[in-house]
Structure formats: structure tokens, C-alpha cells
Amino acid sequence: MEAHPLIAGRRTREGFRDRLGYAATLLSVAVILVAVAAIYLFVFSRGLATFFVNHVNVLDFLFGTEWRPTLTESEGGPKFGVLPFIVGSFIVTFFSALIAGPIGIGAAIFMTEIAPSWGRKLMQPVIEILVGIPSVVYGFTGLTLIVPFLREHAGGLGFGLLAGILVLAVMILPTVTSISVDALSAVPPEIKAGSYALGATRWQTIWRILMRASAPGFVTAVIFGMARAFGEALAVQMVIGNGKNMPTSLLEPASTITTVITMNMGNTVAGSVENNVLWSLALLLLLMSTVFIFAVRWVGRRGRLMSR
């Protein structure tokens, strides 16, 4: 067939580049998908083995309060009750978000509304620095400053839930702040102008217009912060005291799901029950992080619907 210049189609050099670019981006997506699928598959298979291969009772696992993995069978063990760790995770997550939420949102309002020029110039790098500090440094600082402080002024060993909460609150503060800043910046300026033109003061505008309009963004910010707090292992492990019993006060040593995994994974043999139980904990973490992600997406969708 006679080749017409317009029908050269895919044989041209441009056509080749086009396909090459397509292949490259497709490959990137494939790598990500495979990685995620592999993690889910692996964690699920190992995590569920505890219950299906080792026949640990799911209810004893989730609601048991005794963690004695080395107890011999003649003594009635081993016992794999992880409720204290689940409770520990939720307590540190909830209270650190309770501290970081209002502070982060307050800082965001300051940066966007009160002093948008110098406030932002000063705070943006500060937040980036906070994000970039490795968690071991947070843990070390908490160990050196917060733990002795609590020991002196609050009693107990200093190690415990409260120390973990304080370290985590500082760690998630930049997350909460920067997402809140984004939410506030997304409020259209003409809405603000509309409020000012009606004789509203800055405070009335912030309180009655901006806060309402940014509420879904704030919820997203706090959920992201909670997701980070829930998943953080190292810094928490350094200050929480790693007690194995059900915590009865914030000053008592306790554990979280993540700290139990990092504390024990070096001491167990792959394939053993102890090891599989840790994978079950990892599965719990994975499920929780999935819940956080869906919560964020749900809030985001709701927020868009509300502002339509």
C-alpha cells in the first residue's frame, strides 16, 4: 500500500516515543500495585495463620488481657491476649490528637488569617523541620526531657502512656497544621470578602465562616494525624515503658500494637506461633490504617458535597 504522509501512524518516531512514555508510566503504576498487593497478601496470610494454623482463638486474642507468649502448656499457656496493646494504641492516638488538633488548627488560623505574611514565613520552615525530624530523635528527646520531667512532677517512673502521648502530639502537630493550612487557604477569598463587607470583624469571619467552611478539612487533618500516631513505633517505644498489663492510668508503663511488634520481632523465629501472633498484630494495624484512609476519603467526599 502506498504510504501517505498522514497515515504513517504509529511507525513514526513520535509514535514510538508515545508508546514508550505510556509503557514507562504503566510500569510505575504496576510496581506500586504489586507492592501494595504483596504487602496485603503477605500480612493477611501470616496474620491469619495464627488463627487457622496455630488455632489461637480469635476472641482470646482480641479480648484477652494476658500476654504471656513463653508460658508453657503445663502452666496453661501460652497466652496471647493483646487487648492491653490495642487499648494502649487507641489511648495514645486519641489523646495525642486531642492535644495536637486544637493547637494545629490554631496555628493554621494564625498562619493564614492573623499574620499571613510573617506568620507563614516563620512557621512554614518550622513545620517542615518538624516533619523532617526522624522519629528516633523525637523518642530520644522525649526520653531525655519528658520522661524525667514526668517522673519529677507527675510521679511514677516517667515512662508510660502520658510520655507517649506528649511525644506523639508533637510529632503529629506538623501534619495537622499543614493540612489545616491547606483547608483554610482553599476557602475562596470572595467568601471572606462577603463577610467583611457585611461589617463582620476578622474574628466573626474566622469563627462563623472560615471555621465552618474548613471543618471537613480539619477533620481530615486530625484523621491523618491519628493515622500517623497509630502507626508510629520507635519514638513511642522509647518512652512508653513497654508494660504488658492493661493500663489503669496514664502514668503507667504500657505498650501499643506497634511497640509490641518492634520489641518482640527480633526474639521470635519465623513460622512460630509467637512470630505469627506478631503478624496478626500487623494485620490489625493494616486494617486500622485502611479504616483511616477510608475515613479521610469519606470526609473529603462529604465535604465536597456540602460545599456544592
Binding site: 470572595e190 467568601i191 462577603g194 457585611l198 461589617g199 462563623r208 465552618r212 460545599s307
Partner: peptide
């Protein structure tokens, strides 16, 4: 601004009910 009101080119109602938009100020 209470005595000198203003309306813009693009309508900018608040993300509230019709009633609350008017009752706002």
C-alpha cells in the same frame, strides 16, 4: 461597612442555608 454594603460580580453566598445567609449579619 454596615452602612455601605457591597455586592460582587460573582455571587458569593455562604455555604449555609438561604435563611442563614440573610440572618448572618
Amino acid at each position: 461597612r454596615k452602612r455601605v454594603g457591597m455586592v460582587w460580580q460573582r455571587p458569593n453566598p455562604f455555604n449555609k442555608s438561604i435563611y442563614e445567609n440573610v440572618a448572618f449579619a
